[in-house]
Design a protein around this nucleic acid. Sequence first.
DNA 1: CGAGGGTTTGAAGTGCATCAAATAGTGTGG
DNA 2: CCACACTATTTGATGCACTTCAAACCCTCG
Lengths: 246, 246
Amino acid sequence: MAQPASSPRTIPVAQLLAESFLFHGLCADLVQEFVAAAQVKLFPKGKVLFLQGDEAESFYLIQSGWVKLFRETLDGTEAVIDMLPSGHMFGENAIFEDNQFSFSAEISEPTCVVQFPSELLHRSIQLHPQLALNMLNAMSRHRRQQSREIEHLSIQSAPQRIGCFLLRIAQPAPSGEITLHLPYDKLLIAARLGMRSETFSRALNKLKSDVGLVVTGSTVYCSDYTKLKRYACGACSDEYPCEDLR
Amino acid sequence: MAQPASSPRTIPVAQLLAESFLFHGLCADLVQEFVAAAQVKLFPKGKVLFLQGDEAESFYLIQSGWVKLFRETLDGTEAVIDMLPSGHMFGENAIFEDNQFSFSAEISEPTCVVQFPSELLHRSIQLHPQLALNMLNAMSRHRRQQSREIEHLSIQSAPQRIGCFLLRIAQPAPSGEITLHLPYDKLLIAARLGMRSETFSRALNKLKSDVGLVVTGSTVYCSDYTKLKRYACGACSDEYPCEDLR
DNA sequence: CGAGGGTTTGAAGTGCATCAAATAGTGTGG
DNA sequence: CCACACTATTTGATGCACTTCAAACCCTCG
């Protein structure tokens, strides 16, 4: 049960919260309540934080690392719902779902999370309208991302989905060049994009020949992101600089 | 522009609102404000209510009929996001999205809608916490549906998606029998489930042979819904009596 | 150096899309 | 009530995309 447990380095939780959308514009007292209730924990790769269906007693804010959210079907297949980096929150909306998690969460890199009692959020949201509004905004953003994802799954080809993924990670230089590191395992990226790792590998090769991508290990280079954009974004209803999906 | 316009039969808007989740538990004054601002309109099949990217001045509540929500990609493909029957609301969350619709809406059956000014919602939500909470609940429900849909698209086969769709519409008799009418065109159902109409047709045939479905025109009969359930829900991470998705 | 996981490649199969054409179904005007 | 026009649905033939299974390769780490 008790994994590595509460961390030695008490990195300023207060500051983390201040940067989190959920707490924007809230009164200091309220934020302080959350800070007081926070538990900072360090978890190793592979650790399962909770399983779909578990009672939700906490929600989490990622301080560093990566967390995989997923669901499993009766026949054993796993669907990766999301991959979350630092700064992201998860498990918070179980308070709207009978206090049950609707997905499972697993640490996919050594990760430091801040854990808060769900109950505090549930209570606070009734009392502080601004908190509810912040949450609405967050949920709305998430809904848009999901919509786009649904569209991608039904319309884009595997290479296009990868291209889109890369564009969302990339920060094009003024010259139009892109260099980036894949943020996690290719197997995981494949799963996140709804394809097999073999398909991922072959689709990357197709991107090499179709848009001149250069892939070295987990480093990706593209001399001109507009080529990639034409290739991937033509099959999407969003404009190019679309929000980060991960 | 001006289509059939405001309906003659002033069906009690107030009552419609009272039944809508969004207005549960709100003070009568507020509801009255919405009633006062409501416009009841009747639209013919094919009428486009708004397009993705349009400025959102109104949101809508469906009194009767069916509305199709969709998005179009640069290269012209259309993705059907949702099909909404009476009682459902749409366009309301543009208030969180720079007041722009992130999808298009088209009437797919003669439909009566009640139209409200977005601005009123936007204003009210700041002033009435309960309204924000109602909206949070609604959005959360919608998010779950979207998650399930993403899962379906990446995991389920075409016949399984159809089976799942049918189960969500069906009301099994105690005997386990199911009889139902497809709620709209097969072409539309196919689009909603992310497949071609040809695939839909063939997948229905597969359901006939695999689980003994009987299809006559738009009527579907199944002697034992548990067979269908085993067939479809095995490839889903949700328990059977799952929420209606449409 | 060797073990083991991640990644790539190959060969073969499956599912869905596509294109083309037949069929069923619906509404219209005569 | 029938013939015609038009749409919705089905069927057939073919191709491509992705998966599956198997095996090789590569890289890291002990």
